[in-house]
Amino acid sequence: MTEPAPPRHPQLAVSAAIFRDGEIMLVRRARSPAKGVYTLPGGRVEFGESLHDAVAREVMEETGLTIAIIGLAGWREVLPASHGGKGGGGHYLILPFAARWRAGEPTLNDELDDVQWRVPDALDGLTLTDGLPDIIAAAKALL
């Protein structure tokens, strides 16, 4: 079976910089194109879904956590490799939100294979998505 062709337009996605007790939660992707890379939990916004609903749903689906959304912490664009980007075939506009942990302990789905709570200034040794330290700093400033 052949894989479907990637969409011919950008996909809208959200993520959450979740803080608890002075630490931020990072998750490691278990699948390509970002396999082995630590990032923020998140995913695509569904048609008709608000951004806040999307980020809360994606965090719940990926980690089992309930969060309180604080505000928008910036944006990131991932371009397909054919247009100079490092990503696979997709073009994504990602809107990261600052959030506070409310309830639950991380329970990962099949998209993730590790979770770590880290002090935002102690991310050395981890392979991170491009621009993640800047997004974390912007999110922390909103708390």
Rank of each mutant, 00 (worst) to 15 (best):
L12F: 14
G85N: 06
L51M: 08
L65K: 13
I18M: 09
S32R: 13
A54G: 02
H91D: 00
T63M: 15
Y38C: 04
H52E: 10
V55Q: 02
R31S: 04
A30V: 05
L40A: 03
R102K: 12
I69P: 01
A141G: 05
E58F: 05
L142I: 00
I94G: 04
T39R: 07
P133Q: 04
A16F: 10
R31C: 00
L143Q: 01
G71N: 04
G89T: 04
P120R: 05
M60G: 08
D110V: 09
A13M: 11
L123R: 06
G84Q: 11
E46T: 04
P33N: 07
M1E: 04
H52P: 00
R31Y: 00
L51S: 02
A103Q: 15
L126A: 05
G22F: 06
T129D: 11
D114M: 03
G104H: 11
S82I: 12
A17G: 09
V115D: 07
Y92S: 03
A54Y: 03
R20I: 09
R31H: 12
L123S: 02
D124P: 00
G22Y: 10
A81L: 11
L108P: 03
A54H: 02
K140A: 14
P7A: 13
S32G: 13
L132R: 06
D21W: 08
L79T: 06
S15L: 10
D121W: 00
R20H: 14
E105T: 15
S15F: 11
V119P: 00
L126V: 01
E3L: 14
E61L: 15
A137S: 08
A138L: 00
E111T: 11
D113P: 06
A30N: 14
V59T: 15
A34S: 12
R20S: 14
T107G: 12
E111D: 14
H83S: 12
